[in-house]
Write a protein that binds this DNA or RNA. Structure first.
Lengths: 353, 353
DNA sequence: TTTAGCACTCATTCCTTTCGATTGATAATT
DNA sequence: AATTATCAATCGAAAGGAATGAGTGCTAAA
């Protein structure tokens, strides 16, 4: 038997993968034989399919059924056989519309991104802003709010600004707060959370004078904020789209995956994408997460500007339409990058909600 | 035939509802007959069941099947027949644990609340903070951040504090910003969004002098914030729990409901609860939303303090265990109210994230 | 008013059969 | 040597049908 991947074998494998993606049914030799790009008898195709099975690219659910691509088959298809899917005019039109309506305000681009991509692909989608450097505090600000409380505003290097209303445990004037914020800004800006050493804290506390009681509260807030910043925020939408896929008709199976498919699990995905590639596809068992062994993940990276990067991904059955989905994802991320490159509005994005 | 709701009929109806809640299977006359609190022959029960069916409290899936409660049956059960479910010691212990672990920080009580209740009931749960009065701006604050941008902080009467980094379209000193914030605070605090009349805006713009270009940007942000505040924020969790319920074994049905069951749809629910009742149960068709016609909703109100109120609810099949779920919800909301009444930490809650 | 008894209904289960799609092998053909 | 036509063999899926049994409704007796 010929164990070489001849040109014809590749053609046949591609045809099988695409047919299976289309129908979700095992593909027979006859279906392939009649295709114009093959034009051979079903017997010939059968022989080739038999070889491809032995080579590990195809699988047979049972003896008298057609063939189904194995994970290795998908892998080969994705790496070598898949032809670029070019979006039709109507499709780009649709995508454009979906984006324009929602992305007017830059604010929550990422939150919207997952929703839009999910709609575009009809599959669950997620988005993450991944941080390149550890966040530091850029500025502290204390604002007297009412008689007995003030607002603490902390701005981080990542662009996040968070605040909290803090009740004053003691009498204190606007002067005191001003002094304290000056001390904090002098001593603690530019530091990562790990650099908040006891020495630093001690120095700040000693300089704080009568309002030293506020220092631990403020530092605590800053630490929490920096830790939250360091952890990538994940947006996930369209989980339910999976229920529409035939491979999840079994409610038990669906529930099992869907209850696990949350922000938590998604946040482990970005690690898989290499530092240099823009797009990465994980097929079924290539996923590290046990729960995703029966699903594939397509993820892609894009620039947010300011040296930051975003990631957008799609989760679906191994049988998903890789060509179409990568095309749509690429279109979307490229449009996004363009938007970030030349913003039309004067405001900077409020990087984190 | 006796069309009166005799004591025995009530007993039988209660037994049927509770049996059906337990098993999700049509209930036969025999199952009921052998219960100690009934102690009659199956034939007798059959006659009573026949009456109850005619009265509209029971339904028959098909001739040779047992009976199932109709919506009217559930209604009667909830209003008159249901006996208080008292939590066992072990249960309160469990609930207490579930709450303590998570609710340490007051911050996102509501966000956590829906998660906890969903876990407690094993059903989807939601939480909403409902506003009594229209929000107003309490304070504006402008902070110079970097050379060419400043942070706008707006605090509302509802306790929300939001901020945004705004790029400066022109040169401007800290003095300018201070002046502008004074103008804004003088003219616009205490106003609802509707009261931002052209006259008010005009006056502010004229007082703003050289930084008048910033006014529309700031006002725009404030308007958005107030509008967002006026709209109740909804937290929803545990949607997937529905997939575990036998009535949603059909993936199509499940998908239909689950794709609709989002914050959007939940935000229409609170209207249903009357102004004076603490708890409200909507059975199947009593729901206004078409998508919920096959589900019931249990909702309950509780005090957040500061005159604000929260709402927590559970969504499940009409066949849900009303007694147990109302008991758990009551326990939870009472604990919550207690916590709000005497906070143990000095900070006030950051009412909205 | 209650109950025992019995005929009738009808979903469910299980078995068998049929059907048809598909393969693998072999032999004929190019 | 590669391709193709042919055909028996395989096996799931669909269709049919009988047995099962849980449950009801009705009637007549207690």
């Amino acid at each position: 038997m010929n164990m070489e991947l001849t040109e014809r074998k590749k053609k046949i494998l591609r045809a099988i993968v695409e047919e299976y993606i289309r129908t979700a049914e095992p593909v027979s030799s006859k279906t392939i034989a009649v295709l114009p790009e093959i034009a051979a008898s079903s017997a010939t195709v059968r022989n080739e399919m038999s070889d491809l099975t032995e080579m590990g690219y195809l699988e047979q659910p049972h003896t008298s059924a057609g063939r189904v691509p194995s994970p290795a088959g998908y892998r080969l298809y994705i790496d070598e056989l898949m032809q670029d899917y070019s979006l039709t005019a109507a499709e780009t039109q649709n995508l454009k519309q979906a984006m324009e309506g929602r992305l007017k305000q830059f604010d929550d681009v990422l939150a919207q991104a997952s929703k839009i991509v999910s709609k575009m692909t009809n599959l669950p989608a997620y988005s993450v802003a991944s941080h390149t450097a550890l966040p530091t505090v850029k500025k502290f600000e204390l604002i007297l709010a009412e008689e007995n409380s003030f607002i603490l505003v902390v701005m981080t290097s990542g662009g996040a600004i968070k605040n909290r209303l803090i009740r004053l445990p003691l009498d204190c004037t606007e002067q005191d707060l001003k002094m304290l914020s000056a001390v904090l800004n002098a001593a603690m800006t530019g530091l990562t959370e790990a650099e908040f050493t006891p020495e630093v804290l001690d120095r700040v506390t000693r300089s704080a004078g009568k309002v030293e009681g506020l220092v631990p509260i403020i530092v605590d807030f800053a630490v929490n904020l920096l830790q939250a910043e360091a952890k990538d925020e994940v947006f996930l939408s369209g989980e339910m789209k999976l229920l529409g896929q035939p491979e999840f008709r079994d409610p038990d199976k669906a529930q099992q995956l869907l209850t696990r498919l949350d922000e938590e699990m998604i946040s482990n995905l970005p690690a898989a994408i290499g530092p240099n590639s823009r797009m990465k596809i994980l097929v079924g068992p290539e996923n590290v997460a046990e729960e995703l062994k029966d699903t594939s993940v397509v993820m892609t990276r894009f620039d947010i500007g300011d040296g930051m990067q975003g990631m957008i991904g799609v989760v679906g059955p191994t049988r998903m339409d890789y060509a179409q989905i990568t095309a749509r994802l690429t279109y979307f991320t490229e449009s996004l990058s363009r938007m970030f490159a030349k913003p039309e509005k004067p405001e900077l994005p409020e990087a984190k909600k």
